[in-house]
Design a protein around this nucleic acid. Structure first.
Length: 910
RNA sequence: GGGCCUGUAGCUCAGUGGUAGAGCGUCGGCUUUGCAAGCCGAAGGUCCCGGGUUCGAGUCCCGGCAGGUCCA
């Protein structure tokens, strides 16, 4: 077997293969005395204050040098892809340059946009976010330089020999690094279902690049060959810039202007150079994941510099915060610049995580400037190089302002909650439990340090457990993944069938067709061609019928299995070879088509009114109405909604042509950008592009009207916030829209009729009616009060002496329980020894018992009285000693119940 | 996609199935040269909506609407 690691360059130059004495990995070097692999932690950074390159590069300068070098070596320079991976549904963010080409190019289905190519791809990885600012080599967003070659059986571009040679030449000839300082560590890379051997390229303790030879598909721990052999390289351009400058911190190297500003705003002292240098070197040797790791680092730095751990912490914490903020600002600029909408789900949530972490850091630094203001500074740095961010500046700043306000609201709401909680706990002299701490974080977004801060002000002790976030994770029950719906028919049963011809595309207006039955499988029929549109892209399937001579069957559902279309029929009398006559339910299909084209038009209108950060999040077309979910960072206002509706109908009335056609994927992406995928990711080499002329273009497999005018009318029915950052717009088109409007009209007419008003005046009439109703309620209340007073006088004369107790047990006609309570309460206030039991009856009987203070002391218990008396009524009752209530369905027994009450009362006070 | 929390007066919120409350704000009166403040009093409620359980629901159960929050 050929050793892929033995590349031509190593032989030519005389590299030796060795094993690292520290980590045991195999590496290649020219340096005769080298015993370690050259990567941390086996080697310490040796470039600080001593860069290995012939000159210093800024990040932009390094990127330029990188792209130019590979450009000269036959690579086509391609534009960066967005940091939101819109073309994929398996990841949210672009995590590497190779992500740009997955899965269509890497699977061999679609040719690469150029071959070989080179790109500088902003990539976001949030896994190590806690290390950012501290480790020196971690960033939330970094520029990954990648030169890629896609080798197929037909075309060989280059493979391992050339890859290493190119990398080596770039490092030595272009940057001037000495050959014997570069070590190539053998490794094996695996990710995203692919795998391959790789080299890690290290210089003076810093891993600068990874060269992967992707050639396997990995599945369940087994490897199968990949049809393509792909050169996947990743050059950490920030690290290259850093090593070339040889400064103590990579963040100083990359973010200098912003870091300096932040330091000034926060009044952060710069560290002594040697402390920063030692800190960087030692931080480079470890992963900082827990507080314990950080303490270990501080101790090591203290040992080398002679500065105490406490002093170090005081010096380093603010500096690390500044670095992290600078990093996060750049990340957020790209996230929002590439139109992420902040949300509590998906990539929107990831953006919020970074944003809130930034706000927390600002709070810790006591840097009281609006985040939007800091972002404006950051954008000033970025926009000369990234004009696309300049275009979105307004959106970026608005969203950040809004999110900062939301965060502050959440904190102040939460703080109040903690204060109240702390008040109660202090009274009982208890600490705040860690369960409560978790709840505060989980349900109210309050980080534990803020809880601690607020609670300790109120004098309550809070212990934040070391493993707080682990506890949080544990408190979440495991997410139950809903298994994807199983294929209706197993693959074996579909073998050797050729793809079904989709004649609904050729003529979306055709209603009947002839076809040949190729196979029947259980309930399903496979034809050679069909007019039945299968469920897909949010459009439900067609229904209709299939007929052979006199035998007819209903088509109830149509599904796609790869290229084959399955018709579910009831019953299934068909046999392979038969010729069938098919008919689709045209009323249904034409309504679905109108709704589908209407969806595209409405989405276009929403993007124009709300901004092009609006993205289709999901859609369910229907015959009666359609739901369109779109991303937007706040509620759509009624005015905006009317504008969207208006604009959409204008496009309908303009009767624009709707063009559909198949296009090569690369060509379509070049022409329309990733906005093509508004309607979701579409598989395949060729895309079906649907364009409502001059309005909206999407990759879409649905059936569409040929002109917008056929839609007739678009009526928005309602909007709903289905998630933070996602608005659902429900609408109807054509006849369904008319039906909806007519139904509304009927409702309004009915309401108007009830109020003896006209539809135009209904709102005013309803207001008037409501106001009057309220006024009458008040009047009724006061009249009842008067009536109660009169009854009190009447009742006073009915006091009975029963044994030792004084009591009134009477029926009061036409009173409510509320009134009974008021009357009884007035009487018992007057006479503290009195027990009052009042009853009322209509369909049911109810009674109220109240006792004065002295009567209660003497043993009266109205709860018990009510319970006893209510039994007579066939119901139940209860209450407190001073007030009891009860009732039951046997209204005729009210007098008996009152008698029972009196008896009970007598017994109690005997 | 899943979990959790919340919805009561203009605002912030209490409210063990049994008479809907507090603080702030508003209005009126008193006190004060005036302001700030203080004292007394009043107005202000579809307890988010709809069902259910119960003699009785703001409170318990189910469904919906709205908001918040954490995770994948």
């Amino acid at each position: 077997m050929k050793d892929i690691y033995k590349v031509a360059l190593f032989k030519q130059e005389g590299f030796e293969r060795r094993q690292c004495q520290s980590c045991g990995r195999t590496f290649w070097t020219l340096e005769s005395g080298r015993k370690t692999c050259g990567d941390t932690p086996c080697d310490e950074y040796a470039f600080i204050g001593n860069p290995p390159t012939k000159r210093k590069y800024s990040l932009a300068g390094m990127e330029r040098a990188f792209l130019k070098f590979f450009g000269r070596r036959g690579h086509e320079v391609i534009k960066r892809y967005p940091v939101v991976a819109r073309w994929r549904d398996d990841i949210f963010l672009t995590i590497a340059s190779i992500a740009d080409f997955q899965p269509w190019v890497t699977s061999g289905l679609v040719p690469p946009p150029a071959n070989p190519l080179v790109v500088s791809q902003p990539s976001i990885r949030l896994k190590d976010i806690d290390n950012v600012g501290r480790s020196g080599r971690h960033f939330t967003l970094f520029f990954m330089g990648g030169h890629h070659a896609f080798n197929s059986r037909r075309e060989r571009i280059y493979w391992n020999d050339e890859t290493v040679a190119l990398c080596h030449e770039f490092l030595t000839k272009e940057l001037g690094i000495r050959s014997d300082e570069i070590s190539y560590i053998q490794d094996f890379w695996e990710g995203g279902g692919n795998a391959g051997e790789d080299f890690e390229v290290n210089v003076r303790g810093l891993e600068l690049a990874t060269l992967v030879f992707m050639q396997y598909v990995s599945k369940d721990g087994k490897y199968a060959p990949l049809p393509l052999k792909i050169v996947d390289t990743g050059y950490g351009l920030e690290r290259f810039a850093w090593i070339s400058q040889g400064v103590a911190s990579s963040y100083e190297a990359i973010f200098k202007p912003v870091v300096e500003q932040l330091r000034k705003f926060a009044g952060v002292r710069m560290l002594p150079a040697d402390v920063l240098e030692q800190n960087s070197k030692l931080a480079g040797l470890m992963d900082i994941e827990t507080g314990r790791d950080l303490l270990m680092l501080r101790k090591k730095v203290a040992a080398r510099t002679g500065v105490s751990v406490e002093e170090l912490d005081k010096l380093l914490v603010p500096v690390e915060a500044v670095y992290a903020i600078a990093d996060h600002l750049r990340c957020l600029a790209f996230m929002f610049g590439d139109r992420i909408t902040p949300s509590n789900v998906k990539e929107g949530y990831l953006a919020r995580v970074v944003l809130r972490r930034t706000l927390r850091l600002l709070r810790e630094l006591e840097l009281r400037k609006p985040l939007a203001e800091l972002m404006a500074l950051e954008l000033k740095q970025l926009t000369p190089k990234f004009p696309e961010l300049k275009e979105r500046e307004d959106y970026i700043l608005e969203v950040i302002g809004l999110e900062e306000r939301r965060y502050r609201d959440a904190i102040s709401r939460g703080s109040k909650l903690v204060e109240r909680l702390a008040g109660g706990l202090r009274a009982e002299d208890k600490p705040l439990s860690s369960e409560k701490l978790i709840e505060l974080y989980d349900s109210h977004g309050l980080p534990p340090d803020i809880v601690k801060e607020v609670a300790s002000k109120a004098g309550v002790v809070v212990e934040v457990p070391d493993d707080f976030y682990i506890k949080v994770a544990k408190s979440h029950s495991q997410a139950r993944h809903v298994p994807a719906a199983a294929a209706p028919v197993s693959k074996e049963k579909l073998s050797r069938l050729s793809p079904t011809k989709t004649i609904y595309y050729k003529d979306p207006y055709a209603r009947e067709f002839k076809a040949k039955v190729l196979r029947t499988i259980d309930d399903y029929v496979v034809l050679d061609q069909t007019l039945f549109y299968p469920e897909g892209g949010g459009q439900p399937s067609d229904v209709g019928s299939l007929e052979v001579r006199k035998t007819k069957a209903e088509v109830v559902d149509v599904k796609k299995a790869g290229d084959i279309i399955l018709h579910r029929v009831k019953p299934n009398p068909f046999k392979a070879g038969q010729r069938v006559h098919g008919k689709i339910d045209w009323a249904r299909r034409s309504s679905l088509m109108r709704h589908h084209t209407g969806t595209h038009i409405l989405l276009g209108a929403a993007r124009r009114v709300l901004g092009d950060h609006v993205w289709q999040h999901g859609v369910q077309k229907g015959v009666e109405r359609t739901r369109l979910d779109i991303s937007h960072f706040k509620r759509i206002e009624p005015k905006e909604l009317r504008e969207i509706e208006h604009l959409a109908n204008e496009i309908v009335m303009e009767n624009r042509p709707v063009n559909t056609g198949w296009m090569d994927r690369n060509q379509a992406e070049r022409k329309y950008g990733f906005d093509l995928y508004q309607g979701g990711i579409v598989p395949g080499k060729k895309l079906r592009v649907v364009e409502a002329e001059g309005w909206n273009t999407q990759a879409c497999a649905g059936t569409h009207c040929s002109r917008t005018g056929e839609i007739g009318f678009i009526k928005i029915i309602r909007t709903e916030r289905i998630q933070d950052g996602v608005e659902r717009v429900e609408f109807a088109v054509g006849e369904a829209a008319l039906k909806f409007v007519q139904a509304q009209e009927r409702q309004l007419a009915k309401a108007a009729e009830i109020m003896r008003s006209t539809p135009e005046r209904t709102a005013a009439a309803a207001q008037q009616l409501f106001d009057e109703w309220k006024a009458l309620q008040k009047e009724l209340d006061s009249l009842r009060g008067r009536l109660a007073e009169l009854r009190i006088t009447e009742l006073r004369s009915k006091i009975k002496q029963v044994g030792k107790a004084r009591a009134i047990c009477e029926e009061v006609e036409g009173a409510s329980t509320d009134q009974l309570i008021k009357i009884a309460s007035a009487l018992t206030r007057e006479d503290k020894r009195l027990v009052v039991v009042l009853g009322v009856r209509d369909a049911m009987a109810k009674l109220v018992a109240m006792a004065g203070e002295e009567a209660v002391r003497a043993g009266a218990d109205c709860g018990a009285i009510a319970a006893e008396a209510a039994k007579v009524l066939g119901g139940g009752g209860g209450g407190k000693p001073e007030l009891g209530q009860g009732g039951g369905p046997k209204a005729d027994y009210l007098i008996a119940a009152l008698r029972k009450a009196l008896e009970t009362c007598e017994k109690q006070q005997a």
